[in-house]
Design a protein around this nucleic acid. Sequence first.
DNA 1: GCTTTTTGTTGACTCGAGTAGATCCCGGTG
DNA 2: CACCGGGATCTACTCGAGTCAACAAAAAGC
Lengths: 339, 339
Amino acid sequence: MTTSAVHTPRGPVTRKDVARYAGVSTAVVSYVVNGGPKKVAPATEAKVQEAIRILGYRPNAAARALKMGSNQTLGLVIPDSSNPFWALLGHAVEVAAAERGYALLLTNSDNNLDSERRHIRNLADRQVDGVVLASVMFEPDLLELFGTEIRSVLLNHASVAPGFNSVGVDLEAGARLAVEHLIGHGHTNIGLAMGITADNEADGREEGWRRALEAAGLPVGPLARGGFDRPGGYAAGQRLLAADNRPTAIFASSDMQAIGLLRAIREAGLSVPDDIAVASFDGSIEAEYSWPALTTVEQPVWEMAEAAVSALVGENRNEPPQHRVFPTQLRIRQSCGCP
Amino acid sequence: MTTSAVHTPRGPVTRKDVARYAGVSTAVVSYVVNGGPKKVAPATEAKVQEAIRILGYRPNAAARALKMGSNQTLGLVIPDSSNPFWALLGHAVEVAAAERGYALLLTNSDNNLDSERRHIRNLADRQVDGVVLASVMFEPDLLELFGTEIRSVLLNHASVAPGFNSVGVDLEAGARLAVEHLIGHGHTNIGLAMGITADNEADGREEGWRRALEAAGLPVGPLARGGFDRPGGYAAGQRLLAADNRPTAIFASSDMQAIGLLRAIREAGLSVPDDIAVASFDGSIEAEYSWPALTTVEQPVWEMAEAAVSALVGENRNEPPQHRVFPTQLRIRQSCGCP
DNA sequence: GCTTTTTGTTGACTCGAGTAGATCCCGGTG
DNA sequence: CACCGGGATCTACTCGAGTCAACAAAAAGC
């Protein structure tokens, strides 16, 4: 044991070490670190700041979280973070959260309900301040899962669930935009490559496709279902091409699907848009760089992420659940037949 | 006030509530929840389990983290989680972490050094048990940033940094595989679309391209630098096409770059692989679905993520820093000229 | 010069869970 | 019958930070 007054502590530096070094109480250190709730004399503050600097003190987030009941963290549950659309959404949510000082716990449900439930439980245990849930499915027992303690937002969800905040786009209107555009190119036999939604309830995109055709007095074209991903679109495409009344245009319910679809069309020796025109939904970056570039219905992903995060942590977080529906925009490229 | 003995507590349920309900001490509740370190009589255990079930008790992770000094969380810092390659890596890391009971805090550095530093600091403050850092750049002051308290792994990093765990692939060998394959198709003028690395030190991929050409006695073809992303590849492609000695084959340092490159080539009215053959690096899913499908050097992303996570939380986590280099594999598709 | 008020600082309690050490109770032994 | 072993349980302290009531010291008021 030396007799020196102060020596660098070995383990992580705590508030106590700083207090000792600066010759003040631990309370003052807190006041300095948080800028309140009590005032500190300028001279004392300087001493404390110096001590913090010298010792390299960083407050322990776990302790703070315990005391405050919040660890400034949000949870995000998405089906597959390597799918470009979800990846983009994840990125946007991360940025929106970071802007507000929140970190993001990312989890993949792999389109698996059990896995999704486990993740939600886990997030709840970790005392996240809110959960952004992007699920292709919807289960009524979600309400119990979340209990009433934990805030949540359903993102990109088709149906409006009572008791939940939700943020989505007008799927039907978006689909109509695309299909109407294809009709404008003179197509009369327009197929649909539709993703699979667990509840098997007609998705707004399917509805929009039907309505647009009806409104134009056209017959309903062939429909094929498959996953929302590339392989799903590829498989759906093969079936559409094999149909008796092969469509001359196809609307795909996601960009990824459209990319799989393009592949199926190429493999059949046909060309896009000359033999078959294509339009899709989402507006991801892949659509811009595919060949031909995809005409797609763009979702305002960044705004949606903003809205989702602000519903969780904004000052209006104690109001009754909100349902925000964003408009979509048709981004015209070449796959539809436009030059 | 009713006179009933027990009523559901309003706020979150704590260990104390469970103890009261089950008529035991709080210690016993802990023993039951954690299965130790002391034994509990079967009858008592049943009572406690029942109480937990009825009250819906979930232990507070923040409190546990405070006491245990770990919150079973890892941090991941990547340049851009909406870039498919990083997204895939992120997904793989998330899965590897989840398998071990760890959650993943995702952050985007946006290729920005300051932002990267901020995120690392932030993760450290949050007492993550380790950080997976995927950075295109490398800065020597990283060591200080991490201090000695926090474990870290450099993922997908070119240079081997002393004092750090790292996991990567043999970039040079991979690049040679691809370039040698292009040479095998008879090309004698092979260009390079190279990504930009901050330290401006020759990346292994550039080196591999040079070496393969030298070994075959061929002249070094034109080189263009641009971002590793699609726009970067597009820009690099335009420059390569405008070069005096326009190459008949191009090796791109990432799949995303190659996709931008394909676009530039198409816009110039040329075709792949007839006019210009292309091969790239990464092995992401986009490569499989692009047109034409990209011949690419595949990185074993899942194994790499496994290795990275296990270096952080495995039982060998206290050994000296390891540097693991994985082999790559050439995935042959059509963009190189193969049928 | 002696109250008031203001300003600055501190000790002590709190959050919820982990766990060592003390205590209690029971059957078995000398 | 006093004693001991040992299993089951409880008490009490700990982790690190936020914050309030209490207090000391300095400033202002009369």
